[in-house]
């Protein structure tokens, strides 16, 4: 039962079709890669990769201790960072439940003349780690006991715990 030459030819044809389409799609995606990215990082914005005076999305971590809420309105100001560059963000509205300092977010809006990103939509980015609350609490307590200062449930801790527990 040797593989018939006709069949082999067909199989090669199918593989060639697949490879050809793959190359075409690959090149298209490569050419479009900047448009496929959902958001610009603060570094991209600092390097001028993000178009000015256009509605864009900016994404990064909310820097610890940077969130300031207005007392008389829903206005908030915070800093997003990719640990290289920072961007100040202004937003008026209700923040998603998962919004907190140390958490990744994606904000949509425009850069104003003073270099502040005025957002009209803020989305919380969730990472791939899941953890029961008791574990986080125990970890925070252990951390507070060893360092002397209580810390918030930041993403950094969660990532760390996963690495620690999976060891």
């Amino acid at each position: 039962m040797l593989m018939h030459p006709k069949r082999r030819k067909k199989l090669i044809l199918i593989l060639a079709l697949l490879a050809g389409t793959g190359v075409i799609v690959g090149l298209v995606l490569y050419a479009l890669s900047q448009n496929i990215n959902l958001f610009f990082s603060p570094s991209d914005m600092a390097q001028g990769k993000a178009p000015a005076h256009q509605r864009i999305r900016a994404g990064g971590m909310v820097r610890e201790g940077s969130l300031v809420r207005a007392t008389d309105s829903l206005k908030v100001r915070f800093v997003i960072t990719d640990f290289v560059e920072n961007v100040n963000v202004d937003y008026t509205g209700i923040l998603p439940d998962l919004f907190r300092e140390g958490q990744g977010i994606v904000a949509q809006g425009k850069m104003n003349d003073e270099g502040i990103f005025v957002a009209d939509e803020v989305l919380a980015k969730h990472d791939e780690n899941y953890m029961p609350p008791e574990v986080i609490q125990a970890l925070n307590e252990a951390k507070a006991a060893s360092s002397g200062a209580p810390k918030s449930n930041s993403q950094a801790i969660a990532t760390q715990t996963v690495k620690e527990t999976s060891k």
Binding site: N37, E128, Y130, V162
Partner: peptide, 24 residues
């Protein structure tokens, strides 16, 4: 992995340690 997305990376892979405890 290739692009910035809002969707998180895989929590469930056969090649890496799961990113959640066994109960989950």
């Amino acid at each position: 992995e290739w692009w910035n997305t809002l969707h998180q990376s895989s929590s469930f892979t056969l090649t890496a340690k799961p990113s959640m405890p066994a109960d989950m």
